[in-house]
């Protein structure tokens, strides 16, 4: 039973990390656009930069 002395705090601590993570995601507006997020995951950052370069090139 002595193990409870550190097991209970450990369990609570892990739970609190989860709670804090959720609160952080809520505060940083990650639930604002659930639909868009599913697509954004598929964007390649490099592609976007390249596209923009191309556009500015054609303009110039």
């Amino acid at each position: 039973m002595e193990s409870l002395i550190y097991l209970i705090p450990a369990a609570l601590f892990l739970g609190l990390i989860g709670l804090a993570g959720f609160m952080w995601s809520l505060r940083s507006n990650q639930y604002e656009d659930l639909e868009g997020a599913t697509y954004r995951a598929l964007f390649e950052e490099d592609d976007i930069e390249e596209e923009q370069k191309e556009k500015s090139n054609t303009k110039g």
């Binding site: 604002e32 656009d33 639909e35 868009g36 976007i48 923009q52």
Partner: peptide, 23 residues
Amino acid sequence: IREIEGTLGENDKIKNARVNLST
């Protein structure tokens, strides 16, 4: 999303443009 954000991103006066697909 990409077309709109990309196009507006070229505007110097705009710091950030973000599309919300849900709303």
